[in-house]
Design a protein around this nucleic acid. Structure first.
Lengths: 187, 187
DNA sequence: GTCTATAATAGGATAGAC
DNA sequence: GTCTATCCTATTATAGAC
C-alpha cells in the first residue's frame, strides 16, 4: 500500500529497468503497475528522460547509503568486502533483476546523456570504495594476495557485475555464488 | 560490398544487438543498414525470433571456431588464457559493442525461449573451455594460484563479461584492460 | 492528480504486384 | 528477392475536462 504515487512509479520503473532494460518497459507498463492511466504518469515525469534521471538519482543515493552502512557496521577490509558481495547478491532478487548500472549499460544507446554521466559516477564511486576496502584489507591482513588495490577494485567491480549477468541469464543466484567463490575465499 | 543479403542482414543484426540490445533495434534499422525495404527483411527472416535464432546460431559457430583456433595455436594454459582475454577484448570493437551473450542477457525478458537456451549453451561451452585452460595452467604451472579450475572458470567468465560492461559504459577499452590486469598478471 | 481523447510516430508482420 | 501498400498494435507525448 504505497501512499505516494511518485514513489510507486519510481519503484515500478526501477524494477522494470533492472528486469528488462531501458527499452524494455513503457509508460503503459508503469501505469498498469501502479493502477493509474498512462497520461497520469506524464504528470509525475513529463518525459522518459526525466523519469530516468529521477530513478538514477534515487538509486545513487540509496546505493551510497547502503555502502556507508557497510563501512559503519564492519571494521575490517575483509568483512567489508564480504558485505559488499552480499549487497550485490541481494540486488539480484533471485535472478529476476540486475543492478541498475548493469541493466542500463546494455541500453546505453537509448539513454539520455545525463544518464550516461550518472552511470559513470556510480562506477567511479564503487571503484573508490572498493579500492579503499582492498587497501584496508591489505593493511589489516583480512584479504589475501592483494597486489594493487586500484587494480583489485577494477577487477572486483567487473566480477560482481559479470556475476550478475551470469545469474540473470540462468535466473539462478547459485551461479552468482559460483562466480564469487574464489574472491570470497580470499577473505 | 557484401554480395549475400542474408549475411549482410545477420551482420547488421548482430552489430545492432550487441550495441543496443534486442529491444534496441528494429527491422527498419536493418533495412536501412543494408539498403532494402522493411518488407524485404521479412523475406529472409519471417519473424524477429527467427532472426534471433539465426544470429545466435552463427555466433555460436564462430565463437566455437575462434576458441578451437586458440587451442590449436597455443600450447600452455597461460598462453591460452591470455588469448581468450584478447578474444574478448577484440569483441568490444573499441567499446561500441558487447559480446552477444552480455547484450542479450539484459534483454532477457524479450527473448524467444530458444534464445535463452542458446545463451545458456554458450556459457556452458565457455565455462568448460575455461575450466580446461585453468586445469592445464595448473598442471604446467603457467597460471599462478589456481585453486579449483571450475571455480576459476566461473569467476573468469564473470570477470570478462563484467569487464565488457565497464568498457561499454565508458566507451573506453582501457577500462577492460584495468579490469583484467590482475588476472593477466597471473599468467 | 487523474481522467478521456487524441496526436504522431514507430514497431512487427502480411498481401500481392513486379 | 524486392517492392508498395496496408494492418494492427504500441509508444511517447499533449490538450483539456473533472
Amino acid at each position: 500500500m504505497t501512499v505516494d504515487t511518485r514513489t510507486a512509479l519510481l519503484d515500478a520503473a526501477e524494477y522494470a529497468a533492472r528486469a528488462r532494460g531501458f527499452d524494455g518497459f513503457s509508460y503503459a507498463d508503469l501505469a498498469d503497475s501502479v493502477g493509474i492511466r498512462k497520461a497520469s504518469v506524464h504528470y509525475h515525469f513529463a518525459t522518459k528522460a526525466d523519469l530516468c534521471a529521477a530513478m538514477m538519482d534515487r538509486y545513487g543515493t540509496d546505493l551510497g547509503a547502503a555502502c556507508d552502512q557497510i563501512t559503519a557496521r564492519h571494521q575490517t577490509g575483509g568483512a567489508r568486502l564480504l558485505a559488499l558481495i552480499a549487497l550485490y547478491r541481494d540486488a539480484l532478487q533471485g535472478g529476476k533483476t540486475l543492478c541498475l548500472c548493469v541493466a542500463l549499460t546494455g541500453s546505453r544507446a537509448s539513454l539520455p546523456d545525463a544518464a550516461i554521466e550518472q552511470i559513470k559516477a556510480f562506477r567511479a564511486m564503487m571503484l573508490a570504495r572498493l579500492a579503499a576496502v582492498f587497501s584496508a584489507g591489505q593493511k589489516d591482513s583480512t584479504i589475501k594476495y592483494v597486489s594493487d588495490p586500484a587494480s583489485e577494485a577494477c577487477a572486483t567491480l567487473a566480477l560482481l557485475e559479470g556475476a550478475h549477468l551470469t545469474a540473470r541469464a540462468a535466473e539462478n543466484v547459485g551461479t552468482f555464488d559460483d562466480a564469487v567463490r574464489v574472491l570470497k575465499s580470499r577473505c
